[in-house]
Write a protein that binds this DNA or RNA. Structure first.
Lengths: 117, 117
DNA sequence: TGGATGTGCAACTACAGAGTTGCACATCGT
DNA sequence: ACGATGTGCAACTCTGTAGTTGCACATCCA
C-alpha cells in the first residue's frame, strides 16, 4: 500500500467516525446554515452542554469537516466541504467496484452454467 | 419533514454507523472480493471470533450493505452496492449545499464591504 | 478597574457496543 | 445412526466516548 492511499484511508476513517454521530451531523447542519458560529451559541440550540459541543467540534476539526479561527475571545467555526466531498467520491468508487465484481461473478456463474450443458 | 426524507435520514444514519467501524469495512472488502462468504470463513481471515463477525454482519444487514441467503446449514452473505451509492449521493449533495451557502455568505460579505465605502 | 461573557482544562459518570465464551440445535456426509 | 461442521442464543467483560460539572483564565466593555 502506498503512503498516499494509507493517508486516504485514515482520512476516510476519521470522516466516517465523525459523521456517525447524530449530534455532530446536527452541528454541521447548524454551521452550514449560519455560516459561522461559536461553541457557546451552537450549544444554545442543542440539548447538550457547551463542553459537549466543544468536544464534537474537535472531532469534526480532526476530520477536516470544520475549521476554526479565533477573533478576540471568540472561536468561530466554519464548515469545510472538501473532506466531505472526498469521502463521497471514495464511497462512489467503492460502490462502483462492488458493482463490477458482482457483475463479473454473475457472468462467470452463467458461463459455468452454459458449460455444464 | 416528509416521511420519505425522514426515512432517508435514518437510512443514511445506519449506513454511516455501519461504515464507521474498521472491522466492518474490512468485512465488506472481503465480501466484495469473494462475492459470497459465510460468517465462519470470514472469521478465519479476521482476528476476531465468528460471533463478533455475525454481529457485524447483522449491523451491515440492517444498513442494507449486505444481504444473506441460507443454503442448507450455511448462511451466505453478499455485498449490496445500492445503500452505499445512496449515501454517497447524500454526501455529495450535502457538500454542494455547503459550497453554495459559503459562496452566498462570501458574496454578502463583499457586498457589505462595498456598501461601507 | 471590575463585572460580564467566552474559552480551556480536568475529573468524573454512565452507557453503548465490540468482543468473548459456552452450549444447544440443525444439517451434512459416511 | 453418528460424528463433524455450521449456525443461533445468551450471558458476560471491558473499553471507548458522549455527556456532565466545576473552576481557572482571558477578553471585552462601561
Amino acid at each position: 500500500m502506498t503512503d498516499e492511499s494509507r493517508d486516504a484511508v485514515e482520512a476516510v476513517d476519521s470522516v466516517l467516525v465523525a459523521l456517525s454521530d447524530p449530534t455532530r451531523r446536527q452541528l454541521l447542519d447548524l454551521l452550514a446554515v449560519q455560516g459561522e458560529a461559536t461553541a457557546t451559541t451552537l450549544a444554545e440550540r442543542l440539548p447538550v452542554s457547551r463542553q459537549a459541543v466543544v468536544k464534537h467540534l474537535a472531532v469534526l476539526d480532526t476530520a477536516g469537516l470544520v475549521s476554526s479561527s479565533r477573533i478576540g475571545r471568540e472561536v468561530r467555526y466554519t464548515v469545510r466541504p472538501a473532506a466531505l466531498d472526498a469521502t463521497a467520491r471514495w464511497m462512489t468508487a467503492l460502490a462502483a467496484s462492488w458493482d463490477r465484481r458482482l457483475a463479473n461473478i454473475r457472468r462467470a456463474a452463467e458461463a459455468a452454467e452454459r458449460d455444464s450443458h
